[in-house]
Nucleic acid binder design. Structure first.
Lengths: 188, 188
DNA sequence: CTCCCAAGTCAACAGTCGTTGACTTTTTCA
DNA sequence: TGAAAAAGTCAACGACTGTTGACTTGGGAG
């Protein structure tokens, strides 16, 4: 088989880099094979098609590192793994990045981002007032979006099945923590 | 102008329903015009193209209701507006639904959802242990995904600019609240 | 050397996409 | 009523999509 293994792997790796950063629909087979320097027909030949290639990249997902820590260190490790500054190189291999790669259509990016800022973050911060209003607003939005994501998009049973009352008190409690003004001593 | 206004509005409304539930890339001009019962050419004629039609639907976004409450009621109102059971009809007009409509490619839905459950939620719950492990795991994931979403996808300045240390302590504090076992008295 | 199978190449397919220009119909206004 | 403008229709375009079948190449076994 000689070269074929390395070709398959090259295909999987470039596919991962593209899929996980630009999303599935926004990457064409020819984008991948072009970047990998191989023929486009090989995708259908080796993986049965574009979808098969995508599944092959999913099989490469590493265990999320914080999961390998002791339970009492887990939260600390998780926080650390998220605190890194924006590094596209490192983020390309991140499971969370992959799962959120499709969120914003490239053509709409700036418009969507501006809308979130103007229609949600800014008025929410102004309404909240007080110290670090912008930051507390962003945190509250993060929680709301996050829970919504888990419930409606990923459909995690633990959250999707909850009664409205339970979910409401739960969100209120989380939100209170997010809105506490002593969120960060260091500025910016 | 007579009929044209109603045609434009029909176009905007059906476009909103489709875009906001199935995402931008996954809805074609012909999908919209077919559902609205009008000619496909009118999209380019009236709105300058598909993107213009999408922007027109964005102009229809209502103010997020909790923003109109008094600051001290805001959190309560926000929690309530998220606690409703899964109702596609109502959710179609929800800003949060729209912003997350693209997250999961329809062809990949089950695969992605299964992966999140098996690779993240389940092992995390097992590692955490204790009461309501599944639920606490889901909540921690919600926070991590939510913050990641605000930082990297929506690029809210308040979070994107933070130093790694500040972000780390912030995530740790939020995570602790999420992991507290007394999350919900009511089961399921 | 010869055969053969796998690896890789090439052109083309059928389908969908957003968009356009020419056309017909309807409405509006003088 | 008659003319001009607006609204709506239709077929087709060029570009791109994923995929396929026929082809050529390369290296190992008989």
């Amino acid at each position: 088989m000689g070269k074929s293994v390395s070709t398959k792997e090259k295909l999987i790796h470039t596919a991962r880099d593209l899929f996980w950063t630009r999303g599935y629909s926004n990457v064409s087979v020819r984008d991948i094979t072009g970047a990998a320097g191989v023929d486009a027909a090989l995708v259908s030949r080796y993986f049965g098609g574009k979808q098969g290639l995508f599944e092959a990249t999913l099989a490469e997902i590493p265990t999320w590192e914080p999961l390998m820590a002791a339970p009492e260190d887990l939260l600390q490790k998780a926080a650390e793994s998220f605190a890194h500054p924006f590094d596209p190189e490192r983020d390309a291999a991140n499971v969370f990045t992959m799962l959120l790669a499709n969120v914003i259509d490239p053509e709409m990016g700036d418009m969507i981002r501006g809308m979130v800022q103007q229609k949600l973050a800014d008025p929410l911060a102004e309404k909240l007032g007080g110290a670090q209003a912008q930051e507390r607003a962003a945190l509250l939005l993060a929680i709301l979006f996050g829970v919504s994501l888990m419930r409606k998009n990923f459909q995690l049973e633990a959250l999707a099945d909850k009664t409205p009352e339970a979910l409401c008190t739960l969100l209120t409690r989380l939100g209170q923590t997010a809105l506490e003004p002593e969120n960060a001593d260091s500025r910016s």
